[in-house]
Design a protein around this nucleic acid. Structure first.
Lengths: 174, 174
DNA sequence: TATTGTTATACTCTATAACTATA
DNA sequence: TATAGTTATAGAGTATAACAATA
């Protein structure tokens, strides 16, 4: 007798009813993936007409919040390679959302700064993202919502900043 | 006075210290992405020499748990397109982990079944995944670990099966 | 008409490697 | 020697559209 599993024993016979998720139903990794994909889809829906994909928003948002940041630092914060920052920054620049400014103390680097258009776009996107996230978390109680982001930050090794979560949605009002 | 944000006011001046995550630090979507990427990386590390990518494992695991399942049903359960199942199943077939069997009642469909090699591979992978997930969740208390998968399943619209989470890791023993 | 499996194709996100100009 | 930005390229994962065979 092998494969003695708690879920979905092999004698489920010939797959008539709804298929069982089997081992996958106990995997945090798989649950993470499914949640991520669902949220990602709804994000695109919410921001579709702004033409802001998630990383484009992330990059813009970080530049707004850290005026003068250089590309390498942006890559480190976003935990992606420098080479992948280039096209993101190119696009933000081309669309007039940011400027690349020479850094007197280091002629290799460019200081990134959001333009007025960039700040406005980020502001509009943040409002929609607040509504989007509220929608995604509608199945969770307030306490659960606050807990989730903290748990995720710890799993993802993200720095956890002080204060309540979901401030994003709390500034969605007028 | 615009952009009145709780986090990372623009007067942070010239990005000297560690950059702030700003709005991103309150976004569940972003936390989800970071957690997902970290877990994904460690998954590849844990299963690297088995040459099992996450979706390859997912597909194999579902076929083991649902003998006779057809490709369309597999696609529905995994929430991906039928066309993307083809290459996954091709690879599992080519590597001798599953067989495609004609379905007498529907000559369009193939019933998928794991071979002995497929079951053994899934078993070995499950053991390593248990250790991998334990590692990923090491920053969380037992109660938090149990809570996380439930929260994620609800965010991801996954069917939540009864019973405690983390059974996967509990069968990692001898 | 609808569904099953399939092929072709494209797009996003990410990584690696190699280059240049500076430091 | 190391770092900042860049370019080129590759791979995984996903999606859409169209097709033949079958229901």
């Amino acid at each position: 007798m092998r494969e003695r599993l708690a879920v979905a024993p092999e004698r489920r016979s010939e797959a008539e009813g709804a298929p069982s998720m089997g081992l996958l139903s106990t995997s945090v990794g798989y649950a993470l993936k499914r949640a991520y994909l669902r949220v990602y889809d709804d994000f695109l829906l919410a921001l579709g007409d702004l033409e802001l994909r998630p990383q484009l928003f992330s990059a813009l948002s970080l530049i707004v919040d850290n005026p003068g940041i250089i590309q390498s630092a942006l890559a480190r914060v976003l935990a992606i390679e420098r080479s992948n920052i280039v096209l993101l920054v190119d696009e933000l620049d081309r669309r007039g959302f940011i400027t690349r400014n020479p850094v007197p103390s280091d002629r290799r680097a460019y200081a990134l700064r959001a333009t007025e258009a960039g700040r406005l776009c980020r502001r509009e996107a943040a409002i929609r993202i607040a509504a989007h996230e509220k929608r995604m978390l509608s199945r969770l109680s307030d306490a659960e919502q606050r807990g989730l982001i903290d748990l995720l930050a710890r799993v993802g090794s993200l720095p956890v900043e002080a204060g309540p979560a979901l401030r994003l949605s709390e500034r969605a009002g007028p």
